[in-house]
Design a protein around this nucleic acid. Sequence first.
DNA 1: CGAGCATTTGAGCGAGATCAAACGGAGTGG
DNA 2: CCACTCCGTTTGATCTCGCTCAAATGCTCG
Lengths: 243, 243
Amino acid sequence: MPRCSVCTFASFCLPSGMTRRDCERVDSLVHGRISLQKGETLFVPGDPVDAIYAIRVGTLKTQVTTRDGRVQIVGFHLPGELVGLECLVSSQQVLHAIAQEDARLCRVNVPALRALSDNLPALHNNVLRLLSNEVLHDHRMLTVLGVLSAEERVVAFLLDLSARLSARGFAASEFRLRMTREEIGSYLGLKLETISRLFSKLADAGLISIQHRNVKLLDMAALQAIHARAMAEKPVAKPAGNT
Amino acid sequence: MPRCSVCTFASFCLPSGMTRRDCERVDSLVHGRISLQKGETLFVPGDPVDAIYAIRVGTLKTQVTTRDGRVQIVGFHLPGELVGLECLVSSQQVLHAIAQEDARLCRVNVPALRALSDNLPALHNNVLRLLSNEVLHDHRMLTVLGVLSAEERVVAFLLDLSARLSARGFAASEFRLRMTREEIGSYLGLKLETISRLFSKLADAGLISIQHRNVKLLDMAALQAIHARAMAEKPVAKPAGNT
DNA sequence: CGAGCATTTGAGCGAGATCAAACGGAGTGG
DNA sequence: CCACTCCGTTTGATCTCGCTCAAATGCTCG
C-alpha cells in the first residue's frame, strides 16, 4: 500500500512542503486506492462529493456536457494532480471525470480532509494553493479560448503539456498524447479536423514531429515565439510564506 | 466607517453564515476603505499581494493582456463580490483590475486573513467556498467560450448578470450595463460589432429591449430556452456541512 | 486477419471578423 | 443654452478562418 511519505508526487500534492510527521497525518486521509480502466468514469455530475482524488498513475479528463450534447473538456489531469478539488465545499459533483487510460488513484476522504485541515495550517494552505492554481490555470484557458488563433491554441496546448510533464520528471520535448484529436479539439474550442491539420502544418514547418500520438517538440524556440506573443507574463506562483 | 456586521452584502462575502461575534473578528481584517474613480486601476500584474478587496459600491473588471496587446476580460465584479482572491497564496497579482464606474472597496489584509482563518474554521471554509465558486464560474465560462454560438454567449451573459444582480436585491429583468460593447465582446470572445448586432437581433425578436446601456429582459422564457440547451445542469453549490 | 475507430486530407461553406461610414449621447467651453 | 467634439454604438459590405461534409487511409486490438 503506497503512502504519501514515499510517493514520487508528494511535492505536487496535498503533503507538499510538509514535515515527515505532518505528512503521515495526511496519509491517514487516504481511505482507499482506486483502479480505473481506460474509458471508465470516476464521477458524474450530481454524484455526492465524499472524496477528492489524487492521480498516482494514468491520466483523466474532466468535462461538462451541455443539455444538447456538446462537450467541453475543462481539464486533462496528469499523475500527481488532484481531481474534484473544485467541489470540496459542494455537496454534488458538477463535472464528469473519465480515465483516458488505465489509472490508479488515491481516494482522499473529504470530511476527514476538512477536519484535519482545521488543525493543520500547512494542509489548509496547500488546499488553498491548489485551488488557486486551478483558478490561474482556468484564467489562462479563458485567454486561450477567448483571444488565440487556432494555431496559437495548439502550440499553447503542447507547451503546457510539455511543462507539466517535465515538472513531473518526464521528458519535456518528447511524449505521448493520451487523448484523441477530438478531445484536444474539445479542450481548445476547435474541431478534430482543425487539430489534425495544424499538427500537420507544424510538422511540415519542422517545429514538431508527430506520428500518431507520439510528439516531439523539435524547435522549442519557434514554438515559444508563437506562444510568447499570445500569452501574458506568467509570474511563478510562489506560495507566500504562511507565518 | 461601515462594518461587516451591518453590511448589506455580508452574506455573499467573507462573513457569510457567521455568528455576530465571529463577524466582528472578520471586521478587524478590514484595514482600510478604498475609493476608485471610473477607469482607475486597483492593481496590475506583478503588484505584491498584500490585500484582497470586497466591493461595496460600483463594479470592476479583471483582465489579462497578452504581450501583443490582445485583452481577455476574465471577470466582471459586482458589489458584494471579492476581487483578487485567486492570488491569496501568491506573492504577485496576475490580473489587471480596473473600476468600470466610481467604486468603493474594503481592503482585506491578507496576512491577517491568513492568521485569522487558521483559528476560525468558518472563515477558512468561506474562503474555500468563494474560491471554489470562482472555479465553477470559470468552468462555465470555458464552456461559453468553447462551445456556444455568439447568440448563446450573449444570452448567457445577460442571464448571468440578471441572476447575480437579483441575488443582490437589484431588479432581475431591468438593469444598466456598466461596460462597453467592446468589454462585453472581450469577455465573451467576440468583437464589439458582433455584440451590437446580436443586441439588435434580440431586440428585433422582442426578447429584450436595449437603449444604450439600459437593458430589459422582456421574454425571460425564450431567453432561458436559448440558454438551457446550451448549458449543463447547474446544481446549486450548497456549502456542505463542515463537521 | 479483420472490424472498428482514429486520423488525414480535400472541397466548399458560413459565422463572425474586418473594414468602413454614419449616427448619437455625454461632457465641455463659449 | 447651444455648438462642438469625442467616444461609443449601429449598420452595411466584404473577407477569412475554421467548420462541415466526404472519402480514403491506417492503427489497434480482439
